[in-house]
Write a protein that binds this DNA or RNA. Structure first.
Lengths: 146, 146
DNA sequence: ACTTCAAGTTGTACTATACAACTAGAAACC
DNA sequence: GGTTTCTAGTTGTATAGTACAACTTGAAGT
């Protein structure tokens, strides 16, 4: 096996380990915000509001799933729905103040965990690792599908 | 923000994207073998058989969860239980021939997906990326927990 | 106006998971 | 040697996340 082939094997194995761990720990780390809820809130912050359908399309989730997630987030007062005056079928979703705070808090705590884990890494390696991950994720949707 | 801090941000963001995608696509990619089942079978192959308790400890799963997963894998005839003659509480789990084949088949298909995704990468980058991932996962269980 | 399309909700089912209560067997300790 | 304690595993119950299908409501096209 060439060095390249063996490296691909390793990448596959380690990505699998990471995915499994992330999945197992996602609920335990932030009981107040699942990984999906977190990314939905993040998307709302980034886009400054969007429709449920946009979330479903972007994250390859069924619209019923998004509908229930949105209902839960609204119940928790983390988001609010604003009816689109142009089209009465549409609800534009926005973060509430509380939602913004929770999102920031979870982001801080996640960031702290990553910082700790990467504390010993030289800057040069951090920068290269970050670039590799970006390149990997930017690739054509193959292994996954966004 | 320093280059190191901004790299950590990127690593966090990209790892999150990867984890979310992996989760979303895990079921769709291999309907015959969930990510968890896949890793359980992989562990059995690697260790050439082990106990349910070992699986639970290694993957931080509840023993009841493992018990049900194992029951499903046995029902699918991918593993078999052998009673330990030394200790009648213990069942040593082993892959069956069918289990070995399914595992190999899913491994091949996953490998093909990764290869395709990484096809354009120069060997040098593959090797470095693989090393970074190993280093990341080998770190102290912080963000996750095995 | 009628049909067709789009956004969301609700009913139903399934999977993965945890926690608690339980059974069965092994080990330890007077 | 009998009682207590520990360990392996199963089962009951509950929850979260998910999909698919059927439906409602409103918009757009013909």
């Amino acid at each position: 096996m060439s060095a390249a082939e063996s490296a691909v094997e390793t990448i596959q194995r380690e990505m699998t380990i990471f995915a499994r761990r992330a999945r197992a720990s996602a609920g335990r780390m932030h009981p107040e915000l699942s990984l999906v809820s977190y990314t939905l809130l993040g998307h709302l912050e980034e886009r400054d509001g969007c429709r449920a359908t946009d979330l479903a399309a972007h994250y390859a989730l069924d619209k019923s799933t998004v509908s229930r997630q949105v209902a839960a987030l609204e119940r928790a007062a983390l988001i609010e729905r604003r009816l689109d005056p142009e089209d009465h079928r549409v609800q534009v979703l926005h973060l509430t103040e509380a939602g913004r705070e929770i999102l920031a808090q979870v982001t801080r705590s996640r960031r702290a965990a990553f910082r700790e884990r990467l504390a010993e890494w030289p800057e040069e390696d951090l920068v290269r690792f970050a670039a590799y991950l970006e390149r990997y994720n930017a690739g054509p949707a193959g292994t996954d599908g966004e």
